[in-house]
Computed example of a mutant assay.
Amino acid sequence: MSFKPSYYPYDSSWKIPDKDQCFRYWQEFNLPEHIREHSRLVAIIAQEICLLSKSWLNVPIEAVVASALLHDLGKLYCIEHGGYHHQLGASLVMEISGNPAIAQGVMHHVYWPGEVDVEKFFLPLVLIYSDKRVMHDRIVSLEARFEDLFARYGTNHRMKGLIQRSLDQALTIQDQLNQKTGIDLNACTFNSRRMV
């Protein structure tokens, strides 16, 4: 039996934490500087893709940016105590924001278990793609990021299969975004390094 993720059509009454509030959550949860920088870069990429997708975007850009800034909120705890950072992070984000779409993006930023349709599931799929373009604290191509993932975590057949599945999904997301935006995102450096 396969899991089908719930889809949250965006509700304009949901609150969205602004960047300053997200930064306060980083403080509150003692997010290390390198994870903050990683999250900041993921948010830059996600925001740029939102701006390229404005004509068909079905969620507020601010919600995508908040999800990107908070996607690794559970990482430090899971490094120290074990567990899955995307699950813990989604729970924390739901508790602090009350916004299920932002929490859904956090929950699924590692892998989306449903249909890959960037128009229908924009927020979680753009978060997956944006996260896969940042290796530690550098924006890189998908190829470079996954080369690193295979080297560090591809220790057995099962892990190699999971990493390959994630790469295949990221490439599908990229292809769909390329078609929808008319831009080769893999060629984009996203080097503005600023958030609007």
Rank of each mutant, 00 (worst) to 15 (best):
M1C: 11
S2R: 00
S2Y: 08
F3P: 12
Y7V: 15
Y7H: 11
Y7C: 15
P9I: 08
D11M: 11
K15Y: 06
D18V: 11
D20V: 11
D20S: 07
D20I: 11
F23K: 05
F23I: 06
Y25T: 06
Q27R: 00
N30R: 05
N30V: 06
N30C: 13
N30A: 05
L31G: 02
L31K: 10
L41Q: 02
I44Y: 06
I45L: 05
E48R: 01
I49E: 03
I49H: 04
C50S: 12
C50V: 01
L51R: 06
L51W: 12
L51M: 10
L51E: 15
L52D: 00
W56C: 02
L57R: 12
L57G: 13
P60F: 00
P60K: 01
E62I: 05
V64P: 02
V65Y: 02
A66P: 11
A66Y: 05
S67H: 12
L69E: 09
L70K: 01
H71M: 05
G74Q: 04
C78L: 04
C78E: 14
C78Y: 01
I79Y: 06
E80S: 13
H81W: 05
G82I: 10
G83L: 06
Q87N: 12
G89E: 00
S91E: 13
L92A: 07
V93P: 10
V93N: 10
V93M: 06
M94Y: 07
E95P: 05
G98W: 03
G98I: 12
A101V: 14
A103W: 07
A103H: 06
A103S: 03
Q104R: 00
G105T: 10
G105K: 04
V106Q: 09
V106M: 10
M107Q: 15
H108S: 05
H108N: 11
Y111S: 05
W112A: 13
P113H: 03
P113V: 07
P113T: 08
V116P: 07
V116Y: 02
D117T: 04
K120V: 03
F122P: 04
L123S: 11
P124W: 03
L125D: 04
I128D: 00
Y129V: 13
S130I: 03
D131N: 09
D131I: 04
R133Q: 10
I139L: 09
V140Y: 01
V140K: 05
S141D: 02
L142V: 03
E143Q: 08
E143D: 15
E143S: 06
D148P: 12
L149K: 10
L149G: 04
A151F: 14
R152Q: 13
Y153V: 11
G154Y: 02
G154V: 13
T155F: 10
N156S: 15
H157S: 14
H157R: 15
M159I: 09
K160M: 07
G161L: 15
L162V: 14
Q164H: 11
R165E: 15
S166H: 10
L167W: 11
T172N: 13
Q176Y: 01
N178I: 01
G182H: 08
I183Q: 07
D184R: 06
N191M: 03
N191R: 02
S192K: 10
M195H: 09
V196Q: 13
V196C: 14
